[in-house]
Amino acid sequence: MAASIAYQTHAFRSIGTSSAPLASFARFVVCGGGVGLASSWLLVLLADRMPPALAAAGVTVVSTLLATELHGRFSFRSEHTGRRRHLQSALTVAAASLVTTGALLCLHALRPDPGAIWVQSVYLGASAAAGVGRFLVLRAVVFSTGSHRFSTGSHRARSLPGGAWSPPAERRGAAAVRASEI
């Protein structure tokens, strides 16, 4: 029984506390915000040396690669980034861009001359929503670990008689409670 309590305590700690996603989100905001600020300064520096569209495209590619590495290592504490994760992260950037662009297009459809306050409000609101969505996708899909991945079927812990529970089959070890021991 003591082994069961020890395993349950370990399992609870491995799931994390409620602050773990908030800490991860804070790191996500700091990394993404830092890369965003650095990118804007780089864009200003490059704008005089090359066509603005080319400078913007180059800065976008470099900043996306850098942000993906930072998010992987610091925001989500992942050891490996790799090409697949870079591609998935780039797709979340593209989706976020579609959200902000769509929001501005809707604003201009509803108000042909919206003014700077409306444009900034809609853009910042859409950017915040897209950022939260991007964080959720990166956390749940791109940089997921066993503890972040959504559970399905055989990955769920099972309840046993008497209120005890059994960990998923792939994580059962000597400390796991067997139904016959209860």
Rank of each mutant, 00 (worst) to 15 (best):
L46W: 01
A53F: 10
G82Q: 02
G82W: 03
S78Y: 04
A57W: 05
M50P: 07
A57I: 11
P52H: 12
G58H: 04
A67P: 01
V44F: 10
E69P: 01
F76G: 04
L91Y: 03
R49L: 14
L45C: 13
R73V: 15
S78P: 09
A55F: 01
A57H: 04
R84M: 11
L46K: 00
V44R: 10
Q88L: 14
L42V: 05
L54M: 09
A67S: 09
A55Y: 06
D48F: 12
M50H: 12
L65T: 12
L65C: 14
P52F: 13
L46N: 03
L45I: 12
D48V: 06
R85Q: 15
V61H: 03
R73H: 15
R49T: 07
S89Y: 08
L70F: 08
R84D: 09
L46F: 02
R83K: 00
S78A: 15
A94R: 03
L54Y: 03
T60F: 15
F76M: 01
T64G: 05
V62P: 08
R49Q: 05
A53H: 10
S75I: 10
L65S: 09
D48N: 09
G82V: 04
V93F: 11
V59Q: 02
R83Y: 04
T92A: 02
L45A: 15
L45Y: 15
V44G: 05
L91C: 09
T64R: 01
V61N: 00
R73Q: 15
A94W: 08
L87F: 11
A94M: 07
L87D: 06
S78M: 04
Q88A: 14
L66P: 06
L65A: 15
L45V: 10
A47M: 11
L91G: 07
T92P: 00
G72S: 04
T64P: 06
L46A: 05
L70D: 06
A95H: 14
R84P: 07
V61S: 01
T81G: 02
L87E: 12
L87K: 06
L45N: 11
T60C: 09
F76R: 03
R83P: 03
A67M: 00
G58I: 01
E79G: 12
V44Y: 12
T60G: 10
E79D: 13
G58A: 13
R49F: 07
L43T: 07
S63I: 05
H80V: 14
A47Y: 15
T64N: 10
A55D: 00
L65I: 14
L45Q: 13
V62I: 14
